[in-house]
């Protein structure tokens, strides 16, 4: 899926001249030549991973649960974007609309995606996880439920929309904005990176400074004591799912913007796995870790792809690096949990 994403980049890469018959060719020249373009593109993808990773990490923080259904929370957001923009007559080629009309339409798609994803996350928590909590189910029951919910939503979409991808959607034609070290940064990259950074900083500050954020951290560190402070644990859990869903919905808009080739029922899976990997890489349960992990997974994948000459290597390289980092730092780069590790 990612491979379809960056055709321009692939074509820009001069095909590595094989030195011999070895299977893997490292093309260091290509990486040197394309360093800045792969950096900007990697940051763009990384920002999307980071937003989705926040959802994994926040829910893990309060429930110690890997919410595998989060990839479907994300894909529901993608469908939200698709249906909104289709209804607004967006199609495979960029629409001829004035600037502000495009901004307005994208904002509307953003709102729909955010609501759709947040609602999905909240429903999943209420229907699937809360009954288990009330019965004090063991952790494996939660894990299997999470995987089950993920499949259930995927095939619900399959049943509704069929196996083939939806029509492609182009939101706007990327235009060059400025030049860094001879590399063009385009409007699309800029929009995604800036918007994602705003959301990340807002989330980080919300968790750190707001009263609800303090409640989320308290439940993450010690749920019983949090309750003794007057924190409504169930409300905090629901809020946490909603925030994760909201961020996944925003990520969905940026993802469809970046990868115009049709949304598909199982389209959340790979991205979900990579976002989860990003959360683990940074330190699961740690908000800043998820942000760092997302950006790193995006960058490393892109560098690896250029270095090895094919986009098929993107995920391989990203996951090899993940494994190597975990061998050295099993708790991830920044360590686990919303403050638990500071004991």
């Amino acid at each position: 899926m990612i491979s379809e994403a960056i055709p321009s980049l692939i074509h820009a890469v001069p095909m590595a001249v094989p030195m011999d018959d070895t299977w893997i060719t490292f093309d260091v020249n290509s990486l040197a030549e394309n360093f800045w373009s792969s950096t900007f593109d990697g940051l763009t993808f990384g920002a999307i991973y980071a937003l989705v990773a926040l959802g994994y990490t926040l829910v893990y923080g309060v429930l110690n649960l890997i919410n595998f259904a989060h990839s479907e929370v994300f894909i529901v957001g993608c469908y939200g974007v698709f249906f909104t923009l289709s209804a607004l007559n967006f199609g495979p080629s960029a629409p001829h609309l004035p600037f502000w009309a495009i901004v307005g339409n994208l904002l509307l798609a953003l709102v729909v995606a955010v609501i759709a994803s947040a609602l999905t996350a909240v429903i999943v928590e209420r229907v699937a996880y809360k009954p288990l909590r009330r019965r004090k189910a063991p952790r494996l029951a939660f894990l299997i439920t999470a995987i089950g919910v993920s499949f259930a939503i995927q095939y619900l979409i399959y049943w509704w929309r069929g196996p083939s991808p939806e029509a492609a959607l182009t939101m706007f034609r990327p235009t060059p904005i400025f030049d860094v070290f001879g590399t063009i940064v385009d409007s699309q990259q800029l929009v995604i990176i800036i918007a994602a950074v705003i959301l990340m900083v807002a989330t980080d500050q919300f968790i750190r400074r707001s009263k609800t954020g303090r409640g989320i951290r308290a439940v993450a560190q010690d749920p019983d004591t949090a309750t003794l402070m007057g924190v409504n644990k169930e409300k905090i859990i629901l809020t946490t799912f909603a925030i994760g869903g909201l961020l996944a919905g925003a990520a969905a808009l940026f993802y469809v913007m970046k990868i115009p080739s049709g949304v598909q029922y199982n389209g959340g899976f790979i991205l979900g796995v990579k976002a989860f990997a990003a959360a683990v890489l940074g330190g699961i349960g740690n908000v800043r870790g998820a942000l760092l992990g997302g950006l790193l997974i995006g960058l490393i994948g892109n560098y690896g792809q250029v270095l090895l000459g094919s986009s098929q290597w993107t995920d391989v390289v990203a996951f090899v690096v993940l494994v190597l980092v975990l061998v050295v730092r099993p708790d991830g780069i920044l360590g686990t949990s919303l403050g638990k590790s500071k004991a």
């Binding site: 009263k211 303090r214 409640g215 951290r217 308290a218 560190q221 010690d222 019983d224 004591t225 949090a226 003794l228 402070m229 007057g230 924190v231 949990s337 919303l338 403050g339 638990k340 590790s341 500071k342 004991a343």
Partner: peptide, 17 residues
């Protein structure tokens, strides 16, 4: 039951949540 990752002030603020 001190929240280890919160400051003393944040812990006190939790008391008046």
């Amino acid at each position: 039951g001190i929240f280890p990752g919160m400051t003393v002030m944040e812990n006190l603020n939790m008391g008046s949540y």
